[in-house]
Computed example of a mutant assay.
Amino acid sequence: MSFTKTTEQDSNYNGLENMTVSELLQNINAEDQTVPLAVKKVLHQIERLTQEVISKLKQGGRLFYMGAGTSGRLGVVDASECPPTFGVPHGMIIGLIAGGETAIRKAVEFAEDSTTQGWSDLQEHSITEKDIVIGIAASGTTPYVLHALKACNENNIPTGSITCNARSPIAQISKFPVEVVVGPEFVTGSSRMKAGTAQKLVLNMISTTTMIQLGKVKGNKMVDMQLSNDKLVDRGIRMIQSEIPVDSQEAAQLLKNHGSVRAAIKAYHGNK
């Protein structure tokens, strides 16, 4: 099957350096508005992948994200936000990036070109068939991701992917591929833009839906969130007050005593 990197095709705009600030912002915004529509077209793919993630995590497995550059950073961000947001263990969702921790802030030359490091990184976490790995790559060709997913397949580990080109090698080998085709970038080849936005949207959908299905949300509230700053403590107090008839002082004391919104509400009802 033919494979064309639409993410590398020439921008629909030219002479960017001659545009005013207003024109640049309007045109970037116009391109950005096409991304949610591209995501909508592949909701069925996202659903298949999310269902598999939920199944694995319900059975005690883990979710791994893998990527290089922007794609890797987006995976690391999503993984790191789940524990404070939903109160899950840090080892449940793990983000791996080509080049390691250094690459989160500074590009590591040629790290994404390794055909062995991806699988080595997974092995360091003692990955098993109980887990699932999602490769994130706008191009759909990143060797670090591609060869890691191949190794996973050989070891009966479920694989998913989030790519932005149709019929890419990574999507072809993934068991649960998601292909969000966003087309040429505003700045030719700058996949940190529309492709990055698409990947972020999909990651939000997968992790949030999974956490809700795992019982980490009640109503529409993050009842298991970690109380890591004053803003979140204040939010927790308001959440408690919305659920049980107590004033803010009583809610604050319950929260302090029990450590989470869920536990505070449960303790209150248990004492009634």
Rank of each mutant, 00 (worst) to 15 (best):
T102P: 06
E8N: 15
K194Q: 12
L37G: 01
I93T: 14
E8W: 15
T142F: 02
S114V: 12
I104M: 02
T159G: 05
N153Y: 08
A68T: 15
M193A: 03
S120A: 14
K58P: 08
D224V: 00
G135T: 05
A38I: 05
P177D: 00
A111I: 11
V223K: 00
E17P: 02
E185R: 02
V42H: 09
S168C: 04
V182S: 10
F186N: 06
T70A: 02
Q241L: 08
V77Q: 03
R62P: 06
G215H: 13
M211E: 03
A98E: 11
H44C: 05
V217G: 08
S168W: 01
L255V: 03
W119T: 03
N257E: 10
E243Y: 06
P36S: 02
V39K: 01
N29C: 14
E31K: 10
K194L: 05
V181H: 10
E31R: 05
E52Y: 12
M1L: 13
C164D: 01
K266H: 11
A151D: 02
R262K: 14
T7A: 09
V35N: 12
T142W: 05
S248Q: 08
I134D: 00
G259Q: 06
L25Y: 06
D32A: 11
N153W: 03
G236I: 11
G87A: 10
K5F: 09
E17W: 14
T85H: 04
I206T: 07
G15F: 15
K56C: 05
L43E: 13
G118W: 00
G140F: 11
D224H: 07
Q199K: 09
R235V: 01
V77E: 04
